[in-house]
Each structure stands twice: as C-alpha cells, then as structure tokens.
Design a protein around this nucleic acid. Sequence first.
DNA 1: GCCAACGTTGGC
DNA 2: GCCAACGTTGGC
Length: 765
Amino acid sequence: MTDELNGALAEPQMTKPEETPPIGADVVTDDVVNAVGNSVPGKVMSESPPDWLKPMEEDEDDGGDGVKSSEWIIMKTNDDVPKVKRGRGRPRKGSHPVCPKTERIVPPLLGRTRSSNASGTAIPVPDPAHTPEALPRNLQSINHNPISTSEKPRLIPISPAGGSSLSTTPNTEFHSPPRLTRVTPLSFDTSVTQNFVHTPAVKLGNVSRQSVSFTEPARDGTELPLQLWLCPPMEPISPTKTQDMFSDQIVSSANFPGTTLNGSVTLKESLPLLSECESCGCAFPAQKIGDVMCYGCRPKYKKQSPPNIVFRKKQRPEHKKTVKMDFVPDGDDDDDDDDDDDEVVKKRSRRMCQQCDACLREDDCGTCDFCVDKPKFGGSNKKKQKCRLRQCKLQSRLHGQKGNIVEGKRNPSLPRRRRDEKPKLKRRGRPSKKQKPRSNPWEDDDEVYYKDEDDKEDLRRYKMNGRRKGGKRKWKYSFKEEEEDVFIEAVIEEDGASNTEENPDILANQRSAMVSNEMHSNTSGLSAQGLYYNMSGVPAAPYVLGSVPLCNSNPAPMGQVTSSLPMADDGTQNGFLQIEMVRVGSPPSHYTEAAQDTEQHVSEPLQEPTPVITHIFSLVGGENDRDQGLMELFTSLGQTVLPAHWVGVMSKGPILQLLQCSKISSMADTVVQIEKGYFYQVSVQNQPLLLMHAVYSRHPTCLESVDEVVSLLLDLEGLGVCQGYQNFHMGSPREPRMSVRAALCDLLIPKDEEQCPKCTHAVEG
DNA sequence: GCCAACGTTGGC
DNA sequence: GCCAACGTTGGC
C-alpha cells in the first residue's frame, strides 16, 4: 500500500485538479476539501440520497471551488482497488463490491468515484468506546448545538439546598447537557431521580409539591395524567449527540501516512479510509473508527440506541460545490481507447458506485414502488427497477447535479435520447399510448378512471397530503442511513417553487418535516409571513416568524435575548432542517420505507381503491384506539398550518412531539410531547416544565384537538426561557460566570421578563 | 426534464 | 429458463 502510494505520488499527472480520483479513493471527501481548501466549515452530513430522494442533493456539497492537487495526491493513496464487475443483471453473488475477487485494476477513468457521498460516510459514528462523553468537549462543540438556542446557555438547575453537584464540579456540569438526558417527567421514584443529576428539581420533595399544586389547575376536572409522569414513555431527545459526534476529534492515522502532514487528522478528514479487512484481507472503506471488517464480513446487526431527533442546519446553498467526478468518467461511450471489457465495465458500473450504503445494501425493502412492482412481491414487473433503497446514492446525487457537471459533460449514467440517432426498427421504451377516448369510465377493470389528468393529479395530491388544494405538491427527500442513524429530510414542494432554497418565503411556506420512526409522517406546514396564528388573549410574537431566518448559526453572547436579535447576516436561515432519528430496535428499512411509501403515492398510479395513506399512518404493534387517536391528531396537525416553525413529529411510543424549528425562537428549546390519551408535557432544554406552571392551567389536561394544540403553541410563543441567575459562589474567580436556575425554576416566563420569580429570589437570597 | 414503461442483457 | 435490473424510449 505504501509503495503504491509512493508510486502514485510520483505521478504528477494524476494530481491535477481536473483529474478524477480513482475508485477506491473514497477517503477524500468534500469535507477534506473544505478542511484543506477553505475555511468554511464542512457540513456534518452529506450522504447523498438515492434518486428518489434527489431534490436535496445539490446542497450536499460544500463550496470549495478548486481542488488542490495535494488533495488529489491523497486520493491517489488508495488507487489500486480491484475492479468490481457489476452491472445489468443480478449482481453476482459472492463477489461483494467491497470484497472483489477479481484482481483487475480499475482503469483510472472508471475510478472516478469521487463525491461527497464519501464525505457522508466519513462522518464518524461514535463507537461506544468513543462516545462523546468519553471525549473532551469544548465550547465550540457546544456552540454547534444545532437545536438549542445558541445565544442562551443551557441552564442547569441548582438546588438551593446546596446539594447541587454544580458547586463542586462546575466545569463539568456546565457543558451542554449529556445526550442521554431525558426529557424526563417527574417521577416519584427516587432511584430514578438519583440518576437525574442535572435536574435537582425532580427530587422527591419537589415532586410532591408539584403534584399537589397541579391538582388545582386541572380545570377540566379530569384525572391527572400521572402515568405520563410516572411512566415516561418519551424517547430522549438529544440535540447534542450528533454535535458531539461530529466534533473535531483528533485521531491518529498511522495507517495512512499520506493522508496527513503531521500524522493526525480529524475524523472528518480521515474517514472513510481504505482499511484492510481483518477477516478477508480485502481493502474496504472504513466508515468509522473501529471498522476492522469489510461490509461482507461485518456481523449483520444494528446497534440499538435511543431515538434522537436532531435538527441540523442544511448546508448553505452558497457553499455548494459541484460534484466534479463521477464513477463513470465521461459520457463518451464511444471511447476508442477502452477495450470491450472496459466498456462493459463502465456501462455496468454506471448505476453503482459500489461504495455507498445503497450499493452495499443487499436486501430489497419490499415496500418501495420498485419492490412492489417486482414479481416476488406480487408486482407486475412493469418498472423493472432496483429497490429504491439500493439505488446508488452517488448516482442519484449526480443525477441531480448533472446540470452542474463540469466541462459540459453529462452523467452518462443518465442516458439521454440522442437526437441524431437513427431510430431503431424495434422501438424500446414505453409504447406510444394513444389517447383513445373512453366512453365508458368503467371500461378498465383495474384503473380508476379520471376525467382528465388534472383530476388524477388532484386525487394523487389528496392521497398524498390529505388535502386537495394548494397546487401540485411533491415530496422531496434526502436521507442518510448509517450504522445507527437515519436521517430523513423532507420538503413538500409546490409547483413553481422549483428552487425553494433560493426563495426563503416559499420555502418557509412549503417546508414540512417528515420524520419516520415507524411509519409516521407529517405535513405540518411551517408558516411564513402572515400565516402564523394570532389569537386573542395570546401575546403575539414580537416578530413575524415566517420572515425571520431559520437556523441562526451565529452564537450570540450569553444571556442575550434571542428574539431581539437582528436577522442573521448569512444565508443559513435558508437552510433546511434535518431531522435525525436514531433507530430504536426497528429494522433498518423502516425509516426509509416510510419515506418511500409516501413517495410512492406520488408516482404510483391509482390502481387500488384503498387509500394507502392508512398504511402510512399505521402504527407498528399494539395499536389501540388511543394510538389511533394520536395518529389522527398527528394527521390533522399535518393538515394544519401550525404556528410559525412548529413541526409535529411522530415518534415511537407513540409520542407526538411538537418542536420549534426556528433556532431564534424563544421556544427553540421547547418541546411539547403528546402521548397516548393526549396527555402532554412541555419540556424546556430537556427539562420538564413543572406541573405547577401556569401553562398547564391555561390549557386542558389533554390536547385532543388541533385547536388545543395550536392554542398551546401560541401560548408558548408568548413565553420565553428563564435566563436563570448567575451564581457567584461556584467555581474559581477566573472561570466565566455561568447562569444557573433555581431548583423550581419556572423555565418558561413571559417574554418581557428575564428571570422567573424563583431565580430572582435566588439572586436576592 | 422527469418518469413510466419495457426491451434487453447478464448472472444464476 | 428465470430473475434482476440496466438502458432506452416516448409521453407528459
């Protein structure tokens, strides 16, 4: 390997920027380009979606314009990767792409498998032995917290009784909350509270007071949702996990001396690297630290972890970078220099990069439209396409960027009809469909008859979105599936809004979030100007949320009131929000299947009378009426314009979570969770809002209708987060003064106030 | 430009 | 021969 590397380094022609990196050079990512070429921080995730998820794909790249030759030198380090012969037809079994048995060397042209897809896999999935908790944190990582209001420090309640651990270990306690900090309801179980070190307020005595005080505000007289608090089904929400996950961790790269100048690189830069499989000895792209076996030899299991939902800022459009390389180098199929074998290999490699998760996936999901079409799944084999989940992400990414392909070359993997081509005698493709007038709508037994295509389209729309009006809508997804994490990003796009990223108003109007844990989706609209609710008696937000940029990534000084900040000065507000869900014991395909099912509604002709939407919203296991009711509420919320930037997310439990997506909202760290029976809980910065809080008294115990939910959200929008108080008795004088909260901090206070009475009293005391 | 449809081809 | 799915075509 080293010799080969040296040999590669000795070839200056291979280091030209316009040269395509060879296959197997997947270690070089756009992040690397960023890290080397410019100072723009690389995105944290850039796995390219498959073709059916393509709309987001153009954003995945960073904006480095040029690629320095030295970077390509790095790419060259992994040049000699045996070719994988795979193409049309069923892949040859036993010749796994990452463990090819052939010894042929990939021609350089074939090896142009360079894309940010690799950068996606470059994101280190934390190994249990390398969990963020085990690694030093830094302030930067805290500031990168994608969901918390960056301007406001995470406040840790401190017990006035002096029993807080904060006083003894201030430095450790004031990092961002640990990722496993639950949005935990109060509990009478002291064993539980003992472990809840960050929430002294949940001590038994405090709970007692809360429960007593809560009986009073239950205005409708219904029984208190004690089970909600006693048996918290909520999944922990951890906005910090991925942030920590992607924090710059210095690791040694002794095995790849050419990849760094000083012997150490960041994880982003170092992965994936071609490692040698401990089992079979073949080279394979390591996707994370600790990968010692190739995909084929790796044990097939998925590590279970609590589901985390992380909103991430999507890469700014101006940081886009054109993907310059394809695994098939050019579109010239008539390359005379290649022999027939190479030509065959090129053609057959067009649709597969052999690197991405999709290409490495072996099983059909069985639920996507292409799978459903397969005879083995009872389909008619009309489409004859590969499972959506197995369609190369890189290829689909290039598909989406084919307009940006440099030098005017288009992606040959996306064939285009040649105008000058002589028509073949036997025409292929879809046969010409004569517009034969159908006098009898019931003529066709199988197909639903539509008066015209518009009706058909409208019905599709209705089927997909649960409503008919609003123009042509289109689900667009990007997703990423890694070892443990699944990222799904969805946007509903209306006709005429082809470039949502450049039109924030349209974007805000049409953006919806869809998160699938089991089979859930949501079409909650994020409102834009004029679309936010304003109800009498509820203080309106001091700004129009729809016009305020999202995802302000500029951290403000601590204590600064977020909502009073001016608009962000960069383009990050146009960024999408990405929702990450960490799988909890569900098969890998669940997430993506859900997305596909939704997408399937768009593309598949209406041939079945039963609306598939019932399938989408079905819950896996143990459904009962209340579950159904929650799903119905969820569905209804999806058809409602919620207050600005609130998004409904269905999570396992089932739990309906309502999240404020706007980071600059005072409710950015607030989550409303509604569980079966419509009992709800509000949590702020992972801390449960005390039951004595007036918010609970102003709303029903159960949120059973959209109106009640909206009313609560609007109520919350009129509140802000208590800033706590500065504790001058902790830590050394040299340490920065950190704000803390009283044990019974109200957490949510009127926006014009900075502290709740408890914290104020704590200061005075 | 997108995509449904399907001829065709390679692997088994 | 069957199956998977690539590549092409034409409708929209």
